[in-house]
Design a protein around this nucleic acid. Structure first.
Lengths: 152, 152
DNA sequence: CTTGTCTCTATAGTCGCTGTAGACTGTAGG
DNA sequence: CCTACAGTCTACAGCGACTATAGAGACAAG
């Protein structure tokens, strides 16, 4: 199996067809060969590259970092300190979000367990939300709030 | 102080001026009075409402949930079960993200600590990323990956 | 030959803002 | 009164990383 269609590549690497085309459009994946009718044809190295990208995305690396990592992969002689920096930056970000989410979880838990049923007029959840005494620092909260609500 | 400008409201509620105007544009905040020259003028109840919104956003509630919560606030006689559902949904989402982030943190930590310096050719971090044996389930990972990289 | 599944391109939408441009308004000091 | 300068106005483009849609063409199996 030297050449495969985009659908096949999609299954091999676990990345949606549309996403592969998107990666091509932003030059994260190079332009593949085309069949006589214009369909994309990929080789096995595309599976490798796409799997790398997917794994890095799963770990939350932004596209730009992945671009850097791929560039570095093609300079095998260089020092890997730069790679380390990128990974540590990512780890630091994840840890920051973890601690923010833990604070959120605590406040939400508190709110929900305070609710004893009853009417809206006495609802502890709404009361907590209206309360000015915030648990989180405004800056941190602003940073994280955009990200949590997104896909629930 | 019965009437205040948007800048004042911004400081009172801890929400940026542009964000307030955005909330108005999506009908999350109602249209305020205007001065003779067309500047927005808010009363104290706007501070209350905006603070409620901000606190809910800080906790990661999506705008649509906040809209629901505000609607419910205006029906004080009804049962608060619906409010509880919204809050629990949010808590469940936060907990899911927490566990995903914990898995991420573990893998990143493992990757980074495996790096002993040296050249890119032998870099353990790049090796891990290229590895097909993923720690996360593809679906979960896809859900979360979009959110973590965003603001690092 | 038909049916159904891929594949193609191009464009708009998602979420929750943020930034920009260019014009106007309000206020404090000289 | 004049001048700065901060605040406000509208309208629209951009962010990140996709996702969805429309409308058309391609290919494999029965």
């Amino acid at each position: 199996m030297t050449q495969m269609t985009i659908g096949r590549l999609s299954k091999e690497a676990g990345v949606k067809v549309t996403t592969i085309r998107y990666y091509e459009s932003i030059d994260l994946m190079g332009e593949p060969d085309r069949s006589s009718s214009g369909q994309r044809l990929y080789g096995d190295e595309a599976v490798q590259r796409l799997s790398f990208i997917r794994h890095a995305r799963d770990l939350g690396f932004p596209i730009d970092s992945i671009r850097e990592l791929i560039d570095l992969q093609h300079k095998p002689g260089e020092d890997c300190a730069h790679v380390d920096v990128i990974a540590r930056r990512q780890l630091a970000g994840v840890r920051q979000k973890l601690s923010q989410l833990e604070a959120l979880e605590a406040e939400l838990k508190r709110m929900v367990s305070a609710c004893a049923g009853g009417s809206i007029a006495t609802c502890k959840v709404l009361e907590s939300l209206g309360d000015h005494a915030h648990c989180l620092d405004a800056h941190d909260a602003g940073l994280i709030s955009t990200q949590i609500g997104a896909k629930l």
